[in-house]
Amino acid sequence: MIRFAKYESLTAFKKEVSSFLEQDEAANNLLLGVLQSLSEQDATPLLMAALWKNDDLGLVLFQTHPKQIILSKPTALSSQDIHELGQKLVQTVQPIPGFIGEKKITTELALYVSQALGTHAKIHMEQTIYKLEKVKNTLQTNGKLRRVIASDHAVIKEWIYQFCQETNQPLSLDEASIKATFLINKGNLVAWEVNEELVSMASATRPTQHNITISYVYTPSNQRKKGYASDCVSDFTQRLLDRGYQTTSLYADQSNPTSNYVYRQIGYEPIMDSIVIQFQ
C-alpha cells in the first residue's frame, strides 16, 4: 500500500527525506544538491512530496524549476505503485510540466500522467549518471588547470552559449553572459590552458556531504579530439577528491559516445540511466 505526502515546510521536508537521499548521493546528486542549497529564506519550492510504501520511503519528488519535477532514485516500485502515484499527482499537482529521473520509473509515470491529462509526453534528453571514486588515467597533454577569472568572461560566455545549444538547453547570449558571470564569481569554474590559451572548461556544483557534481564540460569544436577535455575533467576531479569529497558525479548525454568513452577512461562508472520527459 502506498501513501503520497506533500510538504509545505522546507525544514520538515529536509528532515523527512535527507537520510533516504543520502543513501546514494551520486545518483541523487541533482535533487539532494538543490535541496541542501535552499533555506527557509529562499522562495518556496513548487513541489515537495514523497511516496511511502509500507511505511518506508520509496520515492522523493521535488520541483524548483518550472519545466520539470525531479524524481529521486526509487526503491522497488511496482507498476501498480507507479499508476497510483500518477493518479495522486494528477489529482493534487497542477501543472505537471515534466519529469527528470531514473529512466524506467520516470517513463512509466510520464506515460500514465500523459494519458490521464490527454497530453503528449516528449523525451527531451536521455543521460547516464556516472560516479567516480578514484581517477584512473594520467594527463596526456601539455597544459595546466586554472581557475577561470573575470577577464575570461568573453570566452566563457560564448562557450556556455554553445554548450547549451549542443545540449538542447538553448539560451540567449545575454543569458549566457549572466550565467558566465555567476559561475566565475562562484569560484568553481576551471579551464584547461595550453600555451596561455583556454581550450576546455568544467565546473563543480551541488556539493553534498560526500559527493560533488561536475558540469558544464565543454571544449570548442576547433580544440576537440586533442585530449583537452579528458585532462581538464581528470585533473579537476582529482583536485575535488583532494578537497575531501569521497566521490564525484556527472551527467553524460547518451547520444554522445565520445564524452561517455572519455569519462569511463578517467574512471567514471555508470550508476543510473536518467531521462528528461516534458509534456506538451
Score class of each variant (00 low, 15 high):
T141R: 12
T44D: 06
Y216F: 13
Y261C: 10
N137R: 13
D242G: 00
I178R: 15
I123N: 03
A5D: 03
G143N: 06
K88D: 09
G118N: 06
N185V: 05
R243I: 11
L35T: 05
Q23E: 10
V155E: 01
T92W: 06
N185E: 09
D55Q: 15
K6Q: 10
A229F: 09
K73M: 04
T44G: 02
S114P: 05
W159K: 03
Q94V: 11
A229G: 15
D42P: 07
R3P: 00
E22H: 08
K122I: 15
P95Q: 08
M1S: 12
S259G: 03
Y261G: 05
I105V: 14
N222Y: 12
K88R: 04
S177Q: 14
L171M: 12
D81I: 09
A204H: 05
Y251L: 10
K88I: 01
W52R: 10
K179Q: 08
I178P: 00
A50C: 02
H120M: 07
S249F: 08
I271M: 06
H153G: 02
A26T: 09
S37M: 12
E84I: 15
Q23M: 11
T11C: 05
C232E: 04
W192K: 02
E166G: 05
D81T: 01
E196F: 14
T107M: 06
Q36V: 12
A49P: 08
Q223M: 13
T128C: 04
A12P: 00
I123A: 08
D55E: 09
L250G: 04
I271L: 05
E102G: 11
L89R: 09
V276D: 00
L89Q: 02
E84Y: 13
N54M: 10
T106G: 01
S79K: 03
M48Y: 05
I266L: 02
Q94A: 11
D56Q: 15
S215W: 02
K134A: 12
K136C: 05
S274Q: 11
F182R: 11
Y112N: 01
S37D: 09
S255E: 07
C232T: 14
N168R: 09
S221H: 08
I82M: 04
E40G: 00
A150H: 11
V190Q: 13
E197R: 15
I123K: 14
G187P: 06
H124Q: 15
S72P: 07
N260R: 08
D273I: 06
I105D: 01
L173F: 08
G267A: 12
S259H: 06
A12V: 15
Q223V: 04
S274N: 12
I70H: 12
S37Q: 10
W192N: 01
V113E: 00
S203N: 10
Y112A: 01
I149P: 00
G33R: 06
S200M: 03
K14I: 08
L139F: 06
I96R: 02
L10G: 04
D55T: 13
F62A: 00
D235I: 14
L35P: 01
S215K: 02
V135Q: 04
L85P: 03
A76L: 12
S151E: 07
E193W: 10
C164M: 14
